[in-house]
């Protein structure tokens, strides 16, 4: 189902020498994808307003002094975009190196492939290079916060705050390299405003936030996505009709997500839909 929208004017953009037409208001990323160019993204979320904090999606826009974040820069008529120029590739490579040298990207989908593609070598910053490594925070039975894997993309904060849930349980605290995602005074989630909707886990791009089931199975070494099946169904708790995608391994539900293109949920659920599957 596609929501009806007023017709939009089409504008012409040039991507890597190729002419593409996109509706006015599209981003450079939309234009690049229309042209069939794949650009890595991390902090970009299909259900959130881009924060453009990670800078892996930077592209070269003719006439611009600096590189532009494809995910949030609006395409303009006549714009000339280079997605694969030496400058853009260099920045992406170094950004990947900076991230991988400071953060555990082992559960970030595509990270390994991108690093190989761009020739990123995080080890060159030396063994003494500062990292954000820290023990995972396990303070409740539903989900785990492993901030050693956090790239500070702000997606969980936005999902918890005014873009979706309006719980405001977490925020970015501190500054610079010491900045972290935190509750007030870093209190445990059980003392915070958290309502355990799990929508922060849904949008986390690196696995820093994960369901307790997944976290425990990964620790045991039993987590195996190739062995999992997914079934999309409708939540039975209330009349809203949220879509649930049940991830099943060994005939057990191991996590629940929701399709991001669903017009009812946009990938969001409440605690019942997300965690209330014990009766199944």
């Amino acid at each position: 189902m596609i929501p009806l929208q007023p017709p939009r004017r089409l504008i012409d953009v040039e991507v890597d020498g190729e002419a593409v037409r996109v509706p006015e208001g599209s981003t450079v990323l939309d234009a690049c994808r229309t042209a069939g160019k794949d650009i890595p993204t991390l902090c970009y979320g299909d259900t959130l307003t881009p924060k453009n904090a990670c800078r892996v999606c930077v592209v070269e826009v003719e006439g611009s002094r600096t590189l532009a974040p494809a995910c949030s820069r609006k395409a303009e008529a006549g714009m000339v975009v280079g997605t694969d120029t030496a400058r853009a590739r260099h920045s992406r490579k170094v950004v990947l190196e900076l991230l991988a040298s400071s953060t555990d990207l082992s559960t970030t989908p595509m990270a390994k492939e991108w690093m190989a593609d761009y020739g990123a070598d995080p080890a060159r910053f030396g063994e003494e290079a500062a990292t954000v490594a820290q023990p995972p925070k396990v303070d409740n039975d539903l989900y785990v916060r492993d901030y050693g894997k956090c790239i500070l993309c702000y997606k969980c904060v936005d999902a918890c705050g005014e873009q979706w849930q309006n719980s405001f349980a977490i925020s970015v605290a501190g500054r610079g390299f010491d900045a972290t995602i935190s509750t007030e005074f870093d209190v445990a989630l059980t003392d915070s405003a958290c309502v355990y909707c799990g929508n922060c886990v849904e949008v986390c791009p690196t696995g820093a936030l994960s369901f307790k089931t997944e976290f425990d199975m990964r620790a045991e070494g039993t987590w195996d996505e190739s062995e999992q099946t997914t079934t999309t169904t409708i939540c039975s708790y209330c009349g809203v009709g949220c879509n649930l995608t049940l991830h099943v391994q060994d005939n057990k539900i191991v996590k629940v997500t929701s399709p991001h293109d669903n017009p009812v949920t946009h990938g969001n659920l409440c605690i019942k839909g997300r965690f209330g599957y014990g009766y199944v």
């Binding site: 990670c54 170094v94 900076l98 040298s101 500062a130 500054r175 610079g176 390299f177």
Partner: peptide, 19 residues
């Protein structure tokens, strides 16, 4: 010290520069 920490090139880059 003064990087706000919002974007990766500055947040981590300033640390690597100092190191």
């Amino acid at each position: 010290d003064e990087s706000c920490g919002q974007c990766v090139p500055c947040r981590v880059g300033t640390v690597r520069q100092e190191e």
